[in-house]
Write a protein that binds this DNA or RNA. Structure first.
Lengths: 271, 271
DNA sequence: TTGCTCCTCACGTCACGTGAGGTGGC
DNA sequence: TTGCTCCTCACGTCACGTGAGGTGGC
């Protein structure tokens, strides 16, 4: 017979753990002294304690350990639980390796520039969205070429959407596609209508972007280039690669002051 | 101005997270409506939200995120924090890979034998221990060769230790070393004395075993072979290798009934 | 009026670590 | 008597998720 302290020393666990396992019914002492409540264990119970520790070390919860030990799971169910643990662990490892790569990218930035960037980039899923849309063609993918095309498009689109009796407000979305003779420019405004109705603009469901590297740009789109470059460098430094032009989502754009505009760039990426 | 719901949608976080960040002072709303307590955010605050999410994704706690954002840490301190995170992540990944290897070993056992072993093996650190010791020589490392050597050793050791006025009781430890002409057999009993005194037995500090694969054996040591084999197979299946003979620690050994003996085998291993 | 969004508590999560406050045997 | 071990609460951990119960504007 061992007191809880001796049993803990032999099992190389804490006394608190043994009390906890008693409390949740995972490992009851062999008997409890009626007079003083002392827990008393048998040496043979070390075998069960070892099984508990071994299963716990595999990453099972104590609930799972209990049902495995109390033979409430068949060999086949156990195989299923192990398979699940296996894939969870693989995911966990992959996620931690991604995190590690990001940490190392940050360290490289500090080595190179002496500080971390002030703007921050986050990879998110962008859900699909239904928009009213007009399109045009620009000579190249530069602010000087895009601006004169997209601004009239948004103006015209706003007029037509209001004319169709729909409400207009942010987010306003600009996005781009390569064309043989330049860049196709799309101006889009979120709307909630059923498709099929006939309007003097397109109704399009923009697809989700499973992985978009995003950054917030403040101020006029004339000065978006440094922000885009920060985004591009980050994508590169973190082992992603771009799979298209960024969507530009105007989150706030008071008409009177472009310095207060807030735009999110959403660039589709893959690892 | 965004309500909390709109701001959460733009930032792709939950409303609850924004309330939590407000509560801990990490991201306060731009202002709070005095009448109804509504939180109101500015689009520009998305930049801070993104920085929070990005740092959180690196694995920093929200406390750390706050001190980084509020510029209470210098670039040098930040580099230190990133380095620490880096090594933590590497450790985490290594630990999960070890766990994964163990899960896979379990799966192989189920495929091969249709069930998991009933006895369980745990890798532990064995702390150093001071013992009284007598030694002998056996022809080989088999129960039939060891038994006749170690039993008289323990008997004699017990007599001498009692004769020296020290108390005797489990754990009794047997351990082994290779010798040119057989195996050196050590019989040891834990004692607490200062070294230097002269006894008719040795006082030895058994070193710690940083990594010991341990299994509990019940019953006479005559029947230890299947238990040893279980341990050896496990060591092999889990990618460890043995670096010596196992210590045998008698945890319980009532003199009248060897079937009730409980012994822990502690085999030193490395990855 | 019904829905929708907002609010503030407050419990639950998981496996213990860590006191606080007290008892019993050597 | 002093130490040591044992006991039972009960809070704290970390970042929210999830109700409960209620309010305000369309």
């Amino acid at each position: 017979m061992f007191t809880i302290g001796d049993f803990a020393r032999h099992g190389r666990v804490s006394v608190r753990m043994l009390r906890h396992y008693d409390a949740i019914g995972l490992l009851r002492p062999d008997r409890v002294d009626g007079a003083n409540g002392y827990r008393l264990y048998q040496a043979g119970q070390l075998a069960r304690l070892n099984r508990i520790i071994a299963l716990k070390d595999l990453g099972f919860t104590l609930q799972q350990v209990r049902s495995i030990l109390d033979e409430q799971v068949s060999a086949e169910q156990l195989r299923g639980m192990l398979k699940l643990r296996q894939s969870d662990l693989r995911e966990q490892i992959a996620a931690d390796e991604a995190r590690l790569a990001h940490v190392e990218a940050r360290l490289r930035m500090i080595e190179n520039e002496g500080h971390m960037p002030d703007e921050d980039i986050v990879v998110k899923r962008i859900p699909p969205i239904r928009v009213a849309m007009l399109s045009g063609l620009a000579a190249s993918y530069e602010p000087e070429a895009i601006g004169p095309v997209i601004q009239p498009l948004f103006h015209e689109l706003g007029t037509r959407v209001i004319g169709a009796g729909l409400s207009v407000g942010p987010p306003f979305i600009a996005y781009y596609e390569d064309a043989p003779d330049g860049v196709v420019v799309h101006a889009a405004i979120q709307v909630s209508v059923e498709p099929g109705t006939d309007y003097d603009f397109e109704i399009v469901d923009l697809p989700e972007i499973p992985h978009a590297a995003t950054i917030v740009h403040r101020g006029s789109m004339e000065h978006v280039v440094p922000t885009s470059q920060t985004l591009a460098r980050w994508i590169d430094a973190n082992g992603y690669s771009s799979t298209g032009y960024a969507r530009e989502v105007q989150i706030e754009c008071p008409g009177d002051n472009v310095d207060l505009w807030v735009t999110e760039l959403q660039e589709p990426v893959t690892k």
